[in-house]
Structures are given as structure tokens and as C-alpha cells.
Design a protein around this nucleic acid. Sequence first.
DNA 1: TTTAAATATGAAAACGTTTTCACAAAAATT
DNA 2: AATTTTTGTGAAAACGTTTTCATATTTAAA
Lengths: 337, 337
Amino acid sequence: MSTIEDVAKLTGLSRTTVSRVINNHPYVSEDKRKLVIEAMNKLGYVPNSSARSLRNQKTDVIALFVPRITNPFFSQLVESTEIAAADHGYQLIICQTRYSPEKELNYMNLLKTKQVDGVILASLQNDWEKIEPFLDYGPIVLCNEFEDRANVPTVKLDQVYGGYIATKHLIEQGHTKIAYCCGGYRSNVAKSREIGFRQALSEHKLSFDERYAFRDAFNIADGKRVFQKMITLPDPPTAVFTGSDEVAAGILSEARKHGYRVPEDLAIVGFDNQAITELMDPMITTVHQPVKEMAQKAVDIIVEKIQSRKYRKKEIYEFPLQLIVRESTVSKKLAKA
Amino acid sequence: MSTIEDVAKLTGLSRTTVSRVINNHPYVSEDKRKLVIEAMNKLGYVPNSSARSLRNQKTDVIALFVPRITNPFFSQLVESTEIAAADHGYQLIICQTRYSPEKELNYMNLLKTKQVDGVILASLQNDWEKIEPFLDYGPIVLCNEFEDRANVPTVKLDQVYGGYIATKHLIEQGHTKIAYCCGGYRSNVAKSREIGFRQALSEHKLSFDERYAFRDAFNIADGKRVFQKMITLPDPPTAVFTGSDEVAAGILSEARKHGYRVPEDLAIVGFDNQAITELMDPMITTVHQPVKEMAQKAVDIIVEKIQSRKYRKKEIYEFPLQLIVRESTVSKKLAKA
DNA sequence: TTTAAATATGAAAACGTTTTCACAAAAATT
DNA sequence: AATTTTTGTGAAAACGTTTTCATATTTAAA
């Protein structure tokens, strides 16, 4: 466990010169530079991160907040963010809030204690007023999730449009009884999708039926549960818009089990364009989200904000969504015709 | 950005006493303690992590190495590890090696630079000789992946047994032409499964057919590709053992597309017991891996080793695997009978 | 009472860097 | 040849903690 002092001693030089070599500063003669590098190799010396962080007042670490990493959308986001961060020389710390405001707030202390240089929030469980004060300690960037009151850079997707095109597509297939099945009361992502959903309905003179609304569906099991509930309704829907491909897959598998034909008896549209949409039979119509691009942008921005130290400003970067039509909404005969 | 010095000044006490309050040391009078806590709240003071790490020679951060986080097996592992680490007061840094030895080696420097207190390797891309020297700088624990030459604690699953029971099950269904389809030449996990696979074969006087062996299948697309290849063989297999549920699902979906009946024309067994196995039609027979327990144990151990500083010792902790029989290997009629 | 032990506090050193400042030598400009 | 500029180097301060040591006071034991 050698220190810079050991290298200095071995070379007969000062800590300063060794430090200059490490950091590629100018004004070090070629022979001393070589001497130092040699000594560093010999000792297996490598600078101590904590000391560096303390002195430089930065850690080169970013925290990424997600609710759960096993949600495929978020694991994709984590993967892309990690790669983008590494490209910028940053390490990524993963914070799983598990939808708990307390956990989220607790993890925010990473910023306060200066363990990370910045935070990317891909999930927001607290009122913004609780998060805001942490801006005193470093930049916060919203990614995917968003919030009107937040005066910070935000990278998001056009969720209203996503809800709109998916619903419009269902309406165009002739459906009038369309269920809405998303997750998250708090999330503005879900809220926006509902706005788009409602917009498509009203544009076609259809009204939103609260009996068809399920707002607590996140995963496969939820999808299954929702299907069970749906079919007990007096006048069950013939189509369902969902907030994730997992929920869609859950509904689809349960529908199949009950002898429902998809899309003939029930049309289903997912969200996220995960691998599973192409595995299911029928393949699931979904909305593609450019996760990689979004993650990349979020990292670019937080890196920039860490450097510029000016991050109390709202800047919105929005990426488009795209409907991917597959078999779960269009009967095969029609599709081929 | 207040420091301990600010708190000291505000209270008229010394840094020492403030530090004692922060760290719950004895011998601080109750009134001073209250005074300090009050001042800390007033200033919004919170101790600086870097300074603490430097002084305490520990960071309370662990690194977890995985090839790719989007692989559901690994995202499950990451989730469980993160939770277990948090329970112990540790933060988790995610390192995606993307199957690259260089990236892996590069990430190992986190240990050398003391940015993390220990490393959990759930993936191993380098020869152990390359990793071994890093033991000078902190504990390394193998988790899931393993290596004979590694003199470190290892938490693993009985992969030989996993390969064995899955294959035996296929043989018991009457299959004699069984394909082997796993990923990773380097990985001992894959090698062990192949040993179990061969063992089951030879116990039933069947011989391993190299033409039926595919050793580069990791994901859904690979599964699809393998199916295509398989059916072009002169005497194609009637069953296939795979190294992951994604590969199995890929094969299954492609088989369906080609009009193959599963399991009648082709029986398929997966590995991991991911959610997808219950979504596919037919549902996929698979091998359950106790990921959570394994992750938990790995964290327990690394935390212990960080404290005890004695970690150059081989200790093997092995968890059992379990065959989950579903429809992709047993025809429905038979299953109900 | 005297002495020993327990309690309470602070000054200063230490953790391992980077940077500021000072200064000297060499090179370039007058 | 005198002066300025560029190049090369080191001592010491700074980053913000925790801990060691010293010391003073209070309490308990003799």
C-alpha cells in the first residue's frame, strides 16, 4: 500500500514532482518523469481515491436512482447509463428506491455527504420540495421521470404522445371499450400517458370509463390480476392499453389461459418494446422508447453541470416515441391483407 | 457546505467533541451533545465522505462485477446484492465488463485505488493469475462464477447437478438425441453444466454428440439462431438443454414459427426460472437458482472479510438447484394424466 | 481527607493527495 | 552582457475528518 511519499523517497524527488507526473502537468523534465514512472511501477503505486476526492472536491461518481433494477425498462436504463458514465470517466452508484420515499431521501444524502458528484433521478417518490434543498450540494438531473416544479435539467420522453398514438391505434382498429392499465399514482410518466389516452378518446368522441381504469399495474402478476378483474366487469373492454410490456404479457398469458383470442377477443398494447414483445404469441404491439439515447443525454448533461456548477435551471430535452404495431392488436389475416 | 470546524465554532467547542458526537463516542456530556446536534441541524452539516474515507481507510462501498445488467439473471443478482449491501450499510458500484477482460481488469483498479473496500465477482473474464495480485489491496469474493485456482471465498451453485437433473429429466421423457446449448467458453458455470449434461448421458449409455453442441448462446437472438442451425442437421435432436431461459424462449418462439410442436417435436429445458418461463406457451421447464440467497451470502462474506482482513483462503459455499417441470418437456396430456 | 478511577474536553497529528508560492537554472530576448 | 521569459523543482498549506495524547475536573474508593 505505497503512497506518493514512497515514490518520492525512492526517486529522491518531492511529492510535488511525483504528483505532476501523475497528472501530466507540464514542466517536468523527461528524465525525472521516466524515473518517477519507473518507481511507480516498481512499487505498484496507484493514487488513493479518497485523498484525491478530498483534495479535488470531486469523486467522479454519479448516483442513479431507479425504483427496481429488475424492471427491464430500468435495467436497460441502468446499462446504458453505466456505459455512458464510464465513457466520461465516471463510476455509477445504483440506488434502488423500491418506490419508497424514505429510501429515496436517504440515498439523496450521497449528494450531501459528497460521496457522489451528481444525481440522476429516473424515479421520483418524494414531493419536489423535499428534493429541492439537495441542490445546494450538487446537480440533479431528471431522466425519464419529470416534474413541473423542478427547476433542473430534464431528459424525458413524450409520454402524452405515447399514450395518444397507442390509444388512437386501438380506436382505429374499431375498439370503443378500451381499458387503461398503468402503474404509479405519483408518477408524471403515468399521468402523461393517461392524458394522451384521454385525448385520443375524446378526439374520437369516446368517453373515459373509470371502471376500465387500473392504476396499480407494474409487473406480470399485476397484469394477470387485472385481466381477472376485467372479465368480471358487466360490459368488459375489448382492448387494453398498458404501461409496460410486462403488464401486457401478463394480461396476454392470462387471456390465453382463459381461452380468449388475442386480438380478436381482446386487443393489447404494451409499452417499452422489450424483447418479450417478440417472444409472445401473438407478438405484442408496443411503444418504443429510445432509452439509450435518453440515458446518454442525461449523462452528458450531468457531467456538464458538474463542471459548470450552474444547474438550477429548467431545460427540457424531449425524445420522441414510436408505435410498433405487431399482432396483439391487428388480427393476422388483416395484417397480411 | 459547512464543515466540522463550522460546527465547532458555532458551539464554541473543539472539532474533537463534535466528532465524538457524530460517532456516538462516550464521554460527552449531555448538554454539549445537545448543543452540537442543534448546531449541526442549524447548519445542515453532514460529514464529508471523502475525508472520512481517507481518515478511516475505508469507503463502505463494494463493487459488483457482472457481464451485462440486462441479462435477467444478473439484474436479479444486482438487485439482491444491492439490497443486501444496503442492509450492511454499504453502497454498491456496478461494473459491467461486457465480457471484456480489459474492462474487467480496468475495473479492478477500483480496489487498488481504494475506491471500494471489496469486490464481488459474478463474472470472470481473465485468467485468475491476472486477478490474484489485486488481493493485496482488498478482499475478492467469487459469486456464481468460480475458479479452482482462486484461493478466495466462493459462493456458488451446484451447476454440475443442474446440468445433470435437467438432462436426466429429458432422457426420462424418452429423448436420446439431446442438444446442448449454453453460453461461455471461459465460464466454469457453463463447463460444469456440460459435465452434468455428459454425466446424465453416460449414465444412460448415451454418447455426447458434438454436432449437437452450441456453446455461444447467451440471449434470445442466439436461441433463434441455434434453432435454425439445429433443424438443418441431418438427424436433428428431439430435445435441447439450454443455459438460460432467454435462449430457451428464443428457441421456443422460433420453433413455433416453423410449425414445430413443443414438446412433441422438440422438448426444451431452460435455466434460471425467470418470469418468462411462465409466460411462454407452452410454459418452459427450467432449473431454479436461489439467486437471492446466493447474493445475500456473498455480501455477508465480503463484509466479514473486509473487517477481518483475512481473505486469502478458499471457502466454498454451495447452494442447491432445483428442477421445475413445466409444459415444454412434458406433453399436456401426459402431464394431466 | 487522600488517592484512584471515571468522565469530559481540546491541541495537534495523521490519512494521501494537489496546489500555491517561492526560487533557481536555463533559454530567449534585448 | 544585461534582462526577461521559460522551465524545472520543492516546502508547506490545504482538503475535512478521526484519533492519540495530554490535561482538567468530577466521582468513587480507601
